[in-house]
Write a protein that binds this DNA or RNA. Structure first.
Lengths: 97, 97
DNA sequence: TTGATAGGCAAGTGACCACTTGCCTATGGT
DNA sequence: ACCATAGGCAAGTGGTCACTTGCCTATCAA
C-alpha cells in the first residue's frame, strides 16, 4: 500500500537504513546498527532499529530472509518506482534566453 | 530540503491536497476546503487546511501568490522529481519463461 | 551443557503533530 | 460607512510515534 510507503519514508532514520541497504544488501540487524553509528553518528538501541525495520518491511521496502540465527535484510525499491508520479506533470524544457 | 518534502508527504490529507492541485492550479484556501469535502469526504476546518498548506509551502511543493483578498495556490512538482532516485537500482527486465 | 551471540515481545515514556477554537486583519461590494 | 468574504495568529488538546528498558527464545561453538 502506498500509504505505508509514505509513512515508512517519513522518518529520517529509516531513510538512512535504506541508504545502507541500497549500498549493500543482506545486512543483519547488528550490522545495520553498527553502520548507523559509525557512518551516520546515530546511536540507537537495537530495538529501535528492529522496529524501524519492521515498519520498512510492512511497507515492502525491505525483505528479510532467515538463515540459522541470522536474519538478512534486502532493499526492495519497487514500491518507490511510481509512488510520486501521480503529481508529476510535463515540465517545459528549458529554453535558454 | 528533501527532509521537508518527506515530512510534507507523510500526511494523507496533504497528499489529497496535492491531488487537487495537480488537477487544477490556482485554487484558494476555501476552494480546497470545499473540494476536500465534496470529493474526498474530508470535513476539516479551514485552519487545518491552512496549516497543511503552510507545510506544503515550506517544502516548496506548493507556491502561493496573493492577489487582492485572494491567495492562489499552485503545485510545484519539481522537488518530487529526484526525491526517490537515491534508492532506485536497475531492475532486470522481465524475461518471460 | 554451558555460555555467547542474534533476535523477538511487550509495556512505559516523552515529544511531536494534526486539529480545533476563538479572536483579529484586510480586501471588496453595496 | 457598513457588512460579508478571504485569510492569519495563537493557545490548547488528544493521539500517534520513536525510543527505551527488561525479559525471553533460538542458534551455534567450546
Amino acid at each position: 500500500m502506498a500509504e505505508d510507503v509514505f509513512k515508512a519514508l517519513a522518518d529520517p532514520t529509516r531513510r538512512r537504513i535504506l541508504d545502507e541497504l541500497v549500498e549493500r544488501d543482506g545486512q543483519t540487524l547488528f550490522e545495520i546498527c553498527a553502520r548507523l553509528v559509525t557512518r551516520h553518528g546515530l546511536g540507537l538501541s537495537r530495538q529501535a532499529v528492529s522496529q524501524h525495520l519492521a515498519v520498512l518491511e510492512s511497507a515492502d521496502l525491505v525483505r528479510s530472509r532467515r538463515q540459522g540465527r541470522y536474519k538478512y535484510h534486502d532493499l526492495n525499491s519497487e514500491p518507490l518506482e511510481h509512488i510520486v508520479t501521480r503529481w508529476l506533470r510535463p515540465r517545459a524544457p528549458e529554453s535558454n534566453p
